[in-house]
Design a protein around this nucleic acid. Sequence first.
DNA 1: GACCAGGCACATC
DNA 2: GATGTGCATGGT
Length: 212
Amino acid sequence: MRKTLFGMYKKLYAGFGPQQWWPAETPFEVIVGAILTQNTSWVNVEKAISNLKKNNALSPSRLRTMPHARLATLIRSAGYYNIKARRLKNFLQFFSVHFQQDVTVMAKVPQERLRRQLLAVNGIGPETADSILLYALGKPAFVVDAYTKRILGRHRLLREDATYEQAQNFFMKRLKIKVQLYNEYHALLVRTGKEYCLKKKPRCSMCPLRGF
DNA sequence: GACCAGGCACATC
DNA sequence: GATGTGCATGGT
């Protein structure tokens, strides 16, 4: 098969199988995780989330009304805990005012409009917004992250310093607009990135994309 | 001890 | 519009 982005997807899927993303029990937990995982490894986020659960704090009302210092302590393991506590609270304020803390209400807003609204929240950038749209709300937003750009860059498909929108358009213009495809593709890119497309010592010879 | 991780806002030029 | 910096823990 000629080099296509769908061909790349098939190679990844053949190599790794389904990734079962997003690892969370509820859409709200997806949103919290999306904010906590900013520039942070997922294992550290898992600890923070389980800590929130253990303290019965993982609900919109609890998080919104909890003192900043308390929240920061609970999410400490995720790093940047002061900033992330503020960002969570920014989102929860927005979530309360516009959607009555109800994910199904938020999901009724048309995708483009909702994306702009999310981006207007301080602390939510393009990747976090698209992660929420795709993995919490099931909307077809292709999520781009550092691994995505690195992999495209290493395969000379796009400059590694391309903007978020450039990388996202690169995928969305070439793939069918399908939630399940976007879901699995991003998860597979992260999986490959973690295991093989490392920054300093890439392990290309073992990568499912070798020879692509 | 250096390097890295499923970013983002903000300052400055 | 591009480029630099602060934010912080925990694993390799």
